[in-house]
Amino acid sequence: MISAIIISCKKDSPVDEDGLLITFRQECFVSNFELLGADFVSVRSKTAVIDTVAQTIDVEVLFGTDLKNVYPQFTLATDCKLDPKITGKTDLSNLANPKVYTVVSGNRKIRKDYKLKIKFQ
């Protein structure tokens, strides 16, 4: 039994620096985007527009949104990851210099920069 457990735990696939499985997938895009306020309620006034060719995300937020304390949420293609990681509340208040997030494909060979452009309602 112990041998079986040991064998089943044997590493046979490569992992990246975050301990995530590196796969063969080449897809690399953002499929959905959400922006939450400090109360974890959406601050979008309409659905975010994601342009996977121009690699931009256009978001319109509600009047009075405090962009210094928001929580962006990205939905990515299978096996992709985001760089930089979102670890908590984020300051997106610098509208003149939109923040750039990089999507990294499952095989970790393709990287695409997405510019997050925010405007008020």
Partner: peptide
């Protein structure tokens, strides 16, 4: 830290 000095759009039970 860095919280705003206003809160708009308040609802019941918020």
């Amino acid at each position: 830290v860095d919280m705003p000095n206003y809160a708009i759009g308040l609802r019941a039970e918020a």
